[in-house]
Design a protein around this nucleic acid. Structure first.
Length: 268
DNA sequence: CAGTTCGCCTGGGGGC
DNA sequence: TGCCCCCAGGCGAACT
């Protein structure tokens, strides 16, 4: 499940390999992957890839007149291959470039691509601040939480508040904050919000570092998902001992998402 | 308007 | 070995 750190890693690798090439043709094998695909194909052909950047969990492939926005969702991934190599199972879109082809491969077909001439406007409408934005402070989080009665974890997953946090890191952030993922955001103090920002930035930057460090093991193909080697404390560790106090971790459901926490360390 | 539930998909794992 | 059922997960649409 790619979250911000994994997306950041994919962006770095794509950047190093396909910037400067132009899109010469598009093969579409599953139409739902691309929103408004006729427009997409019509517009992107013969545009040059000028840069590749990230906003939240979106990959931005920036072309001459607009950008291709890609959301990997759970299992979306890219493969850079030679034109003569066979197409992988679950590849839904192929961008044929000058020197290679870029396969978008997604087992569960949840990933999405679209083309827009105003990408920042499109993204800013749905996304809140980046986790490392200087404007991310206690006042921002307090104003975003005003009049809302939801669990801390649900708040962390809301992309219109902080962009880029997914199910793994929301659990890890709650653990680092020593807060129960189901605690109401209305109960958080100023100190808690400061702690929230700090924990978010520490966990995401460690994960980016870990993702970045494994880049060198990749060659031409990119099976780039979930490659963080960050020390995970709670996610996927239900019934296992807490790394701090050895109390068995509890698994529960919060806002339709599986969640793991330590009943001893994390207070409501 | 805010919060909750559903649907999209497929492969893997458990139960029998 | 094979079949069925459940689960995972981000997000938008459709609800309450």
């Amino acid at each position: 499940m790619p979250e911000l750190p994994e997306v950041e890693t994919v962006v770095r690798i794509l950047k190093s390999q396909i910037v400067g090439q132009s899109i010469r043709d598009v093969t579409l094998l599953w139409t739902k992957t691309i929103e408004n695909y006729e427009f997409f194909i019509h517009e992107v052909i013969d545009q040059r890839i000028n840069s590749i950047t990230r906003r939240g969990k979106y990959i931005m492939i920036n072309l001459d007149r607009g950008s291709i926005l890609v959301h990997l969702r759970m299992e979306g991934k890219f493969y850079i291959k030679n034109e003569n190599e066979p197409i992988f199972k679950h590849t839904h879109v192929i961008l044929h470039l000058d020197l290679c082809k870029l396969e978008f491969n997604d087992t569960r077909k949840f990933g999405r691509m679209l083309y827009t001439e105003d990408p920042m406007d499109y993204l800013n409408q749905k996304l809140g601040l980046e986790p490392f934005d200087n404007k991310l402070d206690v006042n921002y989080l307090k104003s975003k939480s005003r009049n809302r009665k939801i669990a801390l974890k649900t708040f962390l997953l809301d992309q219109s508040v902080i962009a880029g946090i997914g199910n793994i890191y929301s659990d890890e952030i709650c653990f680092m904050m020593k807060k129960h993922p189901n605690c109401s955001i209305q109960k958080l103090t100023k100190k808690d919000w400061t702690n929230c920002i700090h924990s978010t930035q520490v966990i995401l930057s460690l994960a980016i570092e870990a993702g970045g460090s494994s880049v060198r093991s990749y060659t031409s193909s990119l099976g780039v998902t979930g490659l963080f080697q960050l020390n995970i404390h709670v996610y996927g560790r239900s019934n296992k001992p807490c790394h701090i106090c050895e109390t068995p971790l509890i698994k529960t459901v919060i806002g339709q998402r599986s969640s793991v926490y330590c009943p001893n360390c994390q207070k409501r």
